[in-house]
Amino acid sequence: MDTNSNSSDNHSPDSANLLPRSIDWAAIHLAYTTSSSSTRDIGRAHGVTHAAIGKRARREGWERPEKEEPVSAKLAKLEPRQQRFVEEYMVDMNATQAAIRAGYSTETAEQIGYQLLQKTSVVEAISKARQAQQERTAITADTVLMEIANVALADARELVEVKTGCCRCCYGEGHKFQRTLLEMNSDRERWLDKGKDPSEFDEQGGIGFNPLLLPNSDCPNCGGDGQARTVLKDTRHLSPRAVALYAGAKQTKEGIEIKMHSKLDALEKLAKHVGLYEKDNTQKNDPLALRNMTDAERAVRMSSLLQANPALVATLAQLMATGAQQ
């Protein structure tokens, strides 16, 4: 059956776009006064012409934010070797090695690196370069801290589990060695292949072995303790925390070895970040005197400081709770 796409009964996206819509001038004002986006880009995002934005901005006295000085301008104010030092320092954050690669003497590189990091112009250039780097890579301090928190709070059982099930004799007849059906048939075939009397084949505890069953407390072989086995989890179905903890796998003579990042190291980094160590609580840049607070007061204070990142607050609160339980 033919249909008429031009029929008035058909509401195409184009016809929907013809409907009038309200203009969010509050959002436009925010973008105009706080971002570096052009009026054309702002207008395109909000469905209004750049001319209309300019007219309203002039009428209401909107002001554009000051343009930030680009990294190249910051570097241009430095001497050539200082510029090279900033570029090399961004590679590994090692002042001594950066000074050497920038052309300073290896004998005085450590001292020169320290002195350069005391210069306001160099520090500003590094700060600007680091900010630009974070914008390019989308890696911020919060991103790194969340990854550390994921490692610290991950459950290693998501990667490897030790499961204890019944032993071979738990449910065998007379608590004798129990086989699976496949094992029984295979053993019987080998017995017959050797030309032995079928009637003399020892079925022992019969068939039906299932390692997933719980241990039998009456088993004389294992005493109810069962038999442990290692189970490796499918890495395609891991939680974000387990992914952060996972450091790879290696095939060894004994089997597959699962590698993990150190939870203890991650916990130590987080503990320092929230000021749990006494030496960190007494640092000059700690205006909160955390060492004089109770754990509850410290958690409340840290939460108030990190309100801008609710996910991070929740993670750190969980860390505090874990430490309190231990």
Rank of each mutant, 00 (worst) to 15 (best):
E110Y: 12
S303H: 14
E200D: 15
S36V: 08
Q178Y: 06
N185S: 08
K284Y: 08
Q307N: 14
E183L: 09
A99Y: 01
S37D: 14
P310A: 07
W62D: 04
N216F: 05
D280K: 02
L145K: 00
A244V: 03
A152G: 01
Q325E: 14
R298S: 06
V313F: 12
D9H: 13
E268F: 09
L116H: 04
Y89A: 07
A247H: 11
S12N: 05
Q227F: 08
G61Y: 09
E135F: 04
P198H: 10
H261Y: 09
Q251S: 08
E200T: 15
S304I: 05
S304A: 10
L270W: 02
A266Y: 00
C167Y: 01
L316S: 05
A51E: 06
E268C: 10
Y89M: 10
Q251E: 05
A289D: 04
F201P: 01
G113I: 04
R301G: 02
L232P: 11
A244W: 01
Q283P: 00
L212F: 09
E278T: 04
K259E: 12
E88T: 00
V48A: 03
K272Y: 10
R291F: 07
E110K: 13
E124R: 02
S262Q: 06
D187E: 13
H46F: 15
G275C: 02
S15A: 06
M146T: 13
T39G: 11
Q178F: 08
D92N: 11
G47P: 04
